[in-house]
Computed example of a mutant assay.
Amino acid sequence: MADPKSPVDPGGDLGDLLRRLRRRADLSQRELAGKAGVPQAAVARIESGRATDPRYRTVERLVRAAGGEISVELEPACDMQATGSAEPGPIPHDDMRDQAGRRYPAHLDVWEVREPRDWPGAWWAEWYTLPPSSWPLPLPPASYRLNRSYRDERRARARVRRSATVRRVTGPTVPATAWRFVAELPGGELIGELRAHDESPHLRWGDGFLPTERETVLDGVLIVAAYRRLGIGRRLVEALIAAIAGNRGPVCVRALTEQAGIDFLCACGFVIEPSRPAAMRFDQTVSGARQRRW
């Protein structure tokens, strides 16, 4: 609580503050109570310290009636520090209502449910081909998690998604025919890396390719486990493709992957090319004899 003309310590005694405001305004307890619209006994209890927990609305009326003002100061929270402002932002889901017309909890993160995978309660969500008519439960308009650890993790990941930057690494440590891109946080923490190299198809496949033609082989995309599924890997691939296009025009990128990597590359626009060898493997036995397998 503070008064713009005569600042006071908000951590001081409330009764002492009220008495000082009343003295400056030249008001008796009865006169102050009349202006504020509260009982005179309430003023007496606050000033004597017998009202240990008065209602905020009562205190606000008394302070304003005495010519003071009340202000609230907030300590920057972890999510406010990212914006550089101590002011609490608007609740992003405040206009959303549940099926009973009630607001969702303000302290949680609420998202719209458009398909089963958006709803934690949809245990059948992995069955992508299950038609809506076969869903065992109707989807709610929105959903949220009560687990605050999960909420804090989602917020932290959202901050990483917004703040991560992608840049190309060049210099003497990177050969002229190689590509290296890294994803970093503002503090310089490395959270992702992509490496690739150029090669000539003419050397591998013989006739049919010009010696000057080049295609890029994607050696690997690595993302820190805690920051996966945030689109950072796709941003690294897009940066590679944009750099190749700006350097030599048409882009041809080849990759060798399996399992989850196939879905990732398909999401980045790659297609499976069955006309080329898929994999080659080299094994060496304990005795030292070499076995080559295609």
Score class of each variant (00 low, 15 high):
Glu87His: 14
Arg204Tyr: 11
Glu60Gln: 15
Arg293Ile: 14
Arg55Asp: 00
Gly101Lys: 04
Gly101Thr: 03
His107Leu: 11
Ser163Ala: 15
Leu236Pro: 04
Pro138Tyr: 14
Glu184Tyr: 06
Asp79Ala: 11
Gly89Leu: 12
Asp94Phe: 15
Pro120Arg: 04
Pro10His: 03
Arg293Lys: 09
Ala255Ile: 00
Trp179Phe: 12
Ile262Asp: 00
Ala77Phe: 04
Arg292His: 07
Trp205Leu: 06
Asp26Lys: 13
Asp79Lys: 10
Ala2Tyr: 11
Ala86Gly: 07
Val110Ala: 12
Arg195His: 08
Val224Trp: 02
Glu126Gln: 14
Arg145Thr: 00
Gly15Thr: 01
Val174Asp: 02
Arg97Asp: 00
Gly84Met: 05
Pro138Phe: 13
Arg204Leu: 11
Arg103Cys: 14
Pro105Gln: 08
Val59Ser: 13
His107Ile: 06
Arg248Ser: 04
Gly49Leu: 07
Pro4Gly: 00
Gly192Ala: 03
Ser71Cys: 15
Val110Cys: 14
Trp119Phe: 13
Ser163Glu: 10
Asn247Pro: 05
Leu17Glu: 02
Val43Ala: 08
Ile232Tyr: 00
Trp123Cys: 02
Ile232Glu: 00
Arg195Val: 13
Pro140Thr: 02
Asp263Arg: 13
Glu75Trp: 10
Ile70His: 02
Arg167Met: 11
Ser133Gly: 11
Gly34Ala: 05
Leu27Asn: 06
Ser133Asp: 01
Leu240Ile: 01
Pro201Leu: 08
